[in-house]
Design a protein around this nucleic acid. Structure first.
Lengths: 143, 143
DNA sequence: TATATTAATATCGCATGCGATATAATCTAT
DNA sequence: ATAGATTATATCGCATGCGATATTAATATA
């Protein structure tokens, strides 16, 4: 009897996740273009809109990214005058990143994005919720 | 009554998919390092191990990537002497990409990767299968 | 209290992804 | 038959991701 060929693209777990990730990012593009943001920049702002302030390390943890990715992202957002950097008073190593007024204002324009995106996705709500649940479970289980 | 804040990281669909994708890629790293391959290069080889031959355009369609990503990938694999390029006889525009002997041989070393990876993932098989099913459904429904 | 270690960011280099554009071959509609 | 449209790849430029390493501040400890 012949055994299953595990090297087929269809058999992979990672590939459809990877392709789906890029596909969703592409779907965000039109809305993010309006805000002059890239998707990773939008993610950093999501955290700051929620937390008001965060260190580079906290952003890394929240976004599962490394400092060598987050530092340039923050620099970009600083150039766009959406966030500002300051050092912690208790620990001079720690960089405190917070929103500028422009960064706060942008939240209102961004607030319509999530529902607009959900609308544009062709998949039943319950399956999207299940996809969300499974990926979060994967993340928490494989740190 | 207060309405739901859709801008929370926890509410996003894309974010956990994006983070999961990168996390799985990181889990592949040790095995791909042994083959001196990056993850996208491995994907190209997966297609070729399955199809024996493909054009750049076919690789793009299969992998949901653009030519400006696939062309350099193929060039890299050519440099590593894993694939070779030739022009179609009927259509001089079309590039036929096929495996070299080294590329074919590499399949045996790669064949252990999928199960090894599944082993290293901390998540029940049925949920992994469901994650696979949902992401494939997403891809096919949102082309 | 000097010093070794650890911790928080930053820098460098390389490999993707992708929008925009260029190039070359094929097709198509006169 | 031939100019214009279409198709298949390739090139360019920019923005991530990330391994490896450097830098600076805090901490531990002999």
């Amino acid at each position: 009897m012949d055994e299953k060929n595990y090297l087929l693209l269809q058999e992979q777990l990672c590939f459809p996740v990877y392709a789906t990730s890029r596909m969703i990012t592409r779907m965000y593009q039109p809305w993010l273009d309006e805000l002059n943001l890239t998707y990773p920049q939008y993610l950093v702002l999501l955290v700051l809109w929620e937390e008001k302030e965060a260190s580079v390390g906290q952003l890394c943890k929240k976004l599962f990214l490394n400092t060598n990715t987050v530092t340039p992202l923050v620099k970009k957002l600083t150039t766009k005058d959406l966030v500002k950097k300051g050092r912690s008073e208790t620990d001079e190593r720690s960089v405190r990143i917070s929103l500028t007024t422009a960064g706060e204002v942008l939240q209102r324009k961004a607030s319509k994005i999530p529902l607009a995106l959900l609308d544009s996705i062709n998949m039943p709500q319950d399956e999207l919720q299940e996809l969300k649940r499974l990926t979060w479970k994967f993340l928490s289980g494989n740190l």
